[in-house]
Write a protein that binds this DNA or RNA. Sequence first.
DNA 1: GTATGCATTAATGTATACATTGTCAACGAC
DNA 2: GTCGTTGACAATGTATACATTAATGCATAC
Lengths: 225, 225
Amino acid sequence: MPPVPPKSKSNSAIAVEELRKLIFSGELPAGSDHLESELAVRLGMSRTPVREAALLLEGQGLLKVRARKGVRILPISIDDMIEIYDVLTELESMSAAKAADLRFGSEDLQTLEDTIAQMETALSDGDRDAWAAADDAFHTELVRLGGNSRVVSIVALMVDQVRRAKAVTLYMRPLPTQSNKDHRSVLDAIAAGDAKAAHDIHYAHRAAAKDVLINLLRQNRLHIL
Amino acid sequence: MPPVPPKSKSNSAIAVEELRKLIFSGELPAGSDHLESELAVRLGMSRTPVREAALLLEGQGLLKVRARKGVRILPISIDDMIEIYDVLTELESMSAAKAADLRFGSEDLQTLEDTIAQMETALSDGDRDAWAAADDAFHTELVRLGGNSRVVSIVALMVDQVRRAKAVTLYMRPLPTQSNKDHRSVLDAIAAGDAKAAHDIHYAHRAAAKDVLINLLRQNRLHIL
DNA sequence: GTATGCATTAATGTATACATTGTCAACGAC
DNA sequence: GTCGTTGACAATGTATACATTAATGCATAC
């Protein structure tokens, strides 16, 4: 028997997954419109689950359902990026401070440590994709350690919204060597139980990342993604 | 003709509104289960729009759709309240700081001023409901002035989730005289363009409000609402 | 030539019939 | 007596037919 018994997922759930893939891969480009019926054919199911998936993704800010015009994949403007990074800066810094207050032992911080190691390896290999994946994992683990499930959800939503834009700029920006030092400093502050340092270092880290990204987008006239 | 031409809203949108009303009024109590078909009959429409509304409200964290068990109105625990207040504290303080940086003139701050006046009036009248409404309006206006539309949305979501719990405690807590002083101090800091003061005062305000609420709930053994 | 209005039509919004699946209870075996 | 299996049922998940509505294009009048 299969290792994971096929475990039938609902078509609705499949539609959500598939649509997310299509959006993040760029097969459904930002700004493009798609009729429910087209998407239904494409995913091999009826309109109902596609419609439900679209409604869900609308709630997540990835697309907009427009009567008689199909769903529009939402583009991200520079202003959107600023908004999102401001939220991420705030909530991640808060998480870093809370994590420090929680006095985690080194085993609890192992995952965070691992993601940093992965980033360092990726950096010396010049493997930007691996670095981006590890960076993602670092930030996800950081907010998880913060212990606030709502912050975890909100951050995940925000990260999804900027996912495409980050992919575009990944190969445009200089190798993020400073970024790695920041990550380690944040970890050290959390391990030391120094909430204020963890907060402030991470805050500065995110603010710098935001500036780099925004300037990159402006310089390259990438006002919409 | 009517000032607002009847402007037919979709049943789906009506279902969302009605369900929200039913949840906030307590007619659908926290923790209770309701079949889609029951709700459909109750709202006088078919299952489809009810189902879509339920999916939307699930995304907003107000209820959970459970296969073959109906939708469950989500109760709020003390831990949930702590999570939510932590998010509110962070994002509202950030908004206060941004608002101060934006150097609004007194006309721009008029609405905020008005809500404070309403709170003062309500307080001297001992009208708790009016006070709560004005308090709500103050916080809403504050995040609006912060200029980050995502923060506005997130805060609205969080406020909705604690709405029932706040209603329960409204008549239990002492009259919030300190709260009003805080509000005015925040406004003054924003008007003066002092971002750090606006941030810190509001942060302390929210932290105090959280403590009052949590202690009230604990003392009254209201662990679930 | 332009503007207005009507008709067409295409797409969503809704209802409903049907398929699928998890739950519960009854029955039987151990 | 308890545990497991089976089957009926009930509620959701899905498909599809239909109603509604707004956009588009064409015709007609000015």
